[in-house]
Each structure stands twice: as structure tokens, then as C-alpha cells.
Nucleic acid binder design. Structure first.
Lengths: 183, 183
DNA sequence: ATATTTACTTACTAGTAAGTAAGTTTGCCA
DNA sequence: TGGCAAACTTACTTACTAGTAAGTAAATAT
């Protein structure tokens, strides 16, 4: 892997463990055994690095969710929830869960990227729920978009709450969310 | 109000808008027209200030929730949700939503306080849901404690997501959460 | 073979962070 | 009236922040 990707990947990890405002260039340069200035060579500023991390995440999600498109809606939702299980197991929160509370402190460019990220995920989730309901795989009251909101908001916080309480709250929340939508 | 309370209140506001790691002593001293060192007089360190903010919040919640005890469980849950509406209207996230993602970067003392805060809120919510179900005010599947987890996690993220999307997602999530538990 | 570009390092800057030691003002108490 | 404590300010320190300018070695292009 190239240095640029190593920097971006480590930055993502740091954002998702310590938060955007709590990590520094030293946290990147030391483990990668490069100098501070090498980061600036690849990413002119911290906000450009941050924006790049989000962009890569959105791209990754779009590819991943596309690869599920021939599976049932139930399985797609379960794969989606598995992303969060994976985060939980690594002791990380998701990118949205980390960046959304810091929204006000971020540059307009990063804010726009975060908005886009939330749009992409919510649109996918809404479409999946809607289609699943049409096919009678799912059963729930209200708009699919509102159901998507409850799902995503609960999953996001399940990771940070699991960390706080040092138990697998993620699995309990996942179970409950699934039983709320399954026919 | 005394200076010490002014400092603590402003600190809470800053944590809930910018996040713990993004606010500085200058953000406190400038608006309060005091000097940096005056904060250190009242709170020896930033972590002591942070812990004090959480302690005050827990105390406030315990008092508030006690004052609801003679009302119906439905009304109690609605009052509880009104706390989040209030936060939404001020453009703030809740203390838990702000501090939980930063958990790893905080001192053991603050971590313990955050754990306590989550316990207090979850215990209250679980008891309220359980009792409401017994009285047939509420109707839901699964353990009350799991239902409480879904409720709180969703409410927490509703605030940060509302900020990101710049719309009142809070109200849509609240509506959906209520319809999921009402008989 | 020469020039240019890529991917850095070295060495630095200006700004900001939390925190501290010592001094000052104000009000109270004996 | 003298002394003392509470609530500060002044002035400072140490540590760290993102960011930059200039230089370099190695690979690539002409």
C-alpha cells in the first residue's frame, strides 16, 4: 500500500477512536515512521485529509451496497448491520457517529461531505426498507424514511454506548431493531 | 449566579456544541470576562471541570425525573423526550452524544462519570417502560431494557443527525419511537 | 546524458493549549 | 484597626498544534 493510503487509513482509524479534534499529525507520522511534513505533501491540510477520509468511506459503501443488490432485503439489512458489528468488535464508532457531534467545528468542505455521507446512507436504507415492505419481507408502521432514521440513529449510538458501558449493547440493539421490522 | 456556576454552565454549552476536545479555556474566559487563571481557581484542571459538568447533569436529571413521578408513564416518556426537543431547538446535542464518541480520550474520572450518567438514564428509562407496559400504557416486544436502549440511542443520534441534515429529524424520530411503544 | 518530477526530510514558525506561581483587591471577622 | 481568607489578575512556562520553506535522493521522461 502506498503512503498516501496508509495516512488516510490511519486517519480514519484515529477519527473513529479518538475523534477528529483529538488526533494530531504526530499520531499519524510516528506509527507510519514518516515526518510531519510528509503528511502535508499528500494532504495539504488536515481538513483536506478529513474530507478524503469521508469521500473514501462513501465510495466504499456504494461499492459494498451495490455488491449486495441481488440478495434479499432482509439479508441486505443484515449485511449493513454487520458493518456496525465489525466496528464494535474493533472498539470503534462509525465515521458518522464520530464526526456528526463535531459538525460545528469542521470546515464547510468537511460539513458538506458529512451531509453527503448521511444522504447516501439514508437513501440506500430507505429504498431497501421500502422495497422490503413491498415484497412483504418487512412489516412496519409509518414512512420507510422515518423507519430508516430510527434504524441508523440507533445503530450509530449503539457503538458509542457499547464503548461507554463496556458491553455488547450493539447486539441487543440490532436484535431489537430487526424484530421491529421483520414480518 | 456565581462565577463557578457560570463557568460550569458555559462549559456544558461548549461541550454540547463544539465537543470536549475542541473547546479551550479561552472560550470560557473571554465571554465571562475573566482571566484564564480564574477558571483554574474554581476548577484545578479541565478534567475536573468536565467531571463537574456531568455530575451536575446527573443531579439535574434525577431531580427532574423525580418531579414527574406522579404522572402517567406516557407523559413521563414525553417529558423525557422534551429534553431532547429542547436541545434540538438550541442546536445542541446531548451531553452523552457529545462525550461518548470521545470516551477514549477522556480521563478515568470522566469515563467513570459518563458510565454513571448512562446507567442512571437507562435505569430510569427501563423502569418507566416496564411499569408502563404493566399498566398497559405501553405495548412492545422484548425486554424493557432493550427497548430502552433503542429509545435512548435513537434520541441521542437524532440531535447530531438533525444538525448535519439541517432539518428537524428529531421530531420524525420521536414520532416513530412513540408509535413503536404506545398501546 | 540531462532535466524534471515524485516523495520525501530537515529545520523552522507562529499560534494555542493547559497549567502555575506570585501578587492584588475586596469584604468579613475579631 | 489588623489580620485573614476568598476571588481573582498578572505574567509566565512548557508542551504541542498545524503548517511551511528549502533542500535532497531516487526514479522517470526526453
Amino acid at each position: 500500500m502506498e503512503t498516501k493510503d496508509k495516512i488516510r487509513n490511519l486517519a480514519e482509524e484515529l477519527i473513529r477512536t479518538k475523534g477528529y479534534n483529538a488526533f494530531s499529525y504526530a499520531d499519524l507520522s510516528a506509527p507510519l515512521k514518516i515526518k510531519n511534513a510528509a503528511i502535508h505533501y499528500h494532504f495539504p491540510s488536515k481538513e483536506v485529509l478529513g474530507a478524503s477520509v469521508i469521500e473514501e468511506m462513501v465510495l466504499g459503501f456504494q461499492q459494498l451496497s451495490s455488491s449486495w443488490s441481488d440478495q434479499s432485503e432482509k439479508e441486505q439489512i443484515e449485511w449493513f448491520m454487520d458493518i456496525y458489528r465489525n466496528s464494535y468488535e474493533k472498539g470503534m464508532v462509525c465515521l458518522m457517529g464520530s464526526l456528526a457531534p463535531d459538525f460545528e467545528t469542521l470546515s464547510p468542505a468537511m460539513q458538506a461531505q458529512i451531509q453527503r455521507m448521511s444522504r447516501v446512507i439514508l437513501d440506500w436504507l430507505t429504498a431497501c426498507l421500502e422495497q422490503g415492505r413491498t415484497k412483504q419481507v418487512f412489516q412496519f408502521k409509518g414512512e420507510a424514511s422515518d423507519r430508516a432514521l430510527v434504524l441508523i440513529s440507533s445503530l450509530i449510538s449503539s457503538l458509542s454506548l457499547s464503548r461507554v458501558q463496556q458491553t455488547d449493547l450493539y447486539s441487543r440493539i440490532r436484535q431489537q431493531l430487526l424484530s421491529d421490522i421483520l414480518a
